[in-house]
């Protein structure tokens, strides 16, 4: 096995000298500094995209289960549009095509475009899960809510959604973890996130193994942290007397 050189992360990114303490001071940047900043970009893109995806995915999923044909059509069209085009192509569309077609978007930073691209792509998948969750409750709960005098929005708010979201926590967990991993496509439009860091740092240092292992570890930690957080939520939201709910 080749000898590993973890000291590579302590090197200054410009002159390649090892910096004592590994963190560059004023004006200097080590590879460790760069790695951490890249991690920050990865998390920022992911978490913001997740917010967009959850909000729009929930809305579209709900629309698809309403009795109004126009709203169902809108939700269906949204979902099919964003899940039938490869993610990488969507990112390029946001970066190259959309600003050309919609002039006001020309000045928008690519960070925002990536958040939108990744967020909308994932919203289509979440929309599908929300729809499935609501439909799994069958018609009885909806009728029971309406029969109590709730309006349709109240029936969703108090009766359907609290159970539907509990039911879909496991697939939502996967989706939230996916968004961390999928954020790696942001390198394609020059967002300085983990994957772009890995490409550039291994080129400059020729220490591909160390660089990729570090990046892999950070991706794993990030996704796993989301997994644990969602598990905590799942346990907190458990309904007594339901399957797996305990007593």
């Amino acid at each position: 096995m080749a000898t590993w050189d973890w000291q590579v992360f302590c090197k200054d990114t410009i002159d390649g000298k090892i910096v004592p303490g590994c963190f560059g001071g004023s004006g200097d940047t080590t590879y460790l500094d760069w790695l951490l900043s890249a991690w920050g970009w990865t998390l920022s893109v992911s978490l913001l995209a997740l917010l967009v995806a959850l909000a729009l995915g929930a809305l579209m999923g709900i629309l698809r289960t309403t009795p109004h044909r126009g709203l169902v059509l809108l939700g269906n069209a949204w979902t099919e549009l964003f899940r039938n085009i490869p993610l990488l192509v969507q990112i390029f569309l946001w970066y190259h095509v959309v600003p050309a077609l919609i002039p006001p978007l020309r000045g928008v930073p690519s960070f925002i475009l990536v958040v939108l691209g990744l967020g909308l792509f994932t919203s289509a998948r979440i929309s599908e899960q929300v729809r499935a969750g609501i439909q799994s409750l069958a018609g009885g709960q909806r009728m029971a809510g309406l029969a109590m005098g709730f309006t349709l929005p109240q029936t969703y708010r108090y009766v359907l959604l609290p159970m539907a979201f509990r039911i879909i926590i496991p697939p939502l967990t996967s989706e939230s973890m996916n968004i961390i991993k999928n954020s790696s496509v942001a390198f394609a439009v020059s967002i300085s996130e983990l994957t772009l860091f890995a490409l550039q740092a291994q080129e400059e240092t020729s220490r591909g193994i160390e660089v990729y292992l570090a990046v892999t570890g950070l991706y794993f930690i990030s996704a796993f942290a989301i997994n644990r957080a969602m598990l905590f939520v799942e346990n907190r939201m458990r309904v007594p007397g339901m399957i797996g709910g305990g007593t």
């Binding site: 009728m143 029971a144 809510g145 309406l146 109590m148 005098g149 007397g241 339901m242």
Partner: peptide
């Protein structure tokens, strides 16, 4: 209809209590 339903009690075959 919501106003009318609020005054008409309904009991279903499968109870349909709100489980959460």
């Amino acid at each position: 209809l919501p106003k009318l339903r609020a005054r008409v009690g309904m009991v279903f075959q499968h109870f349909e209590l709100f489980p959460h």
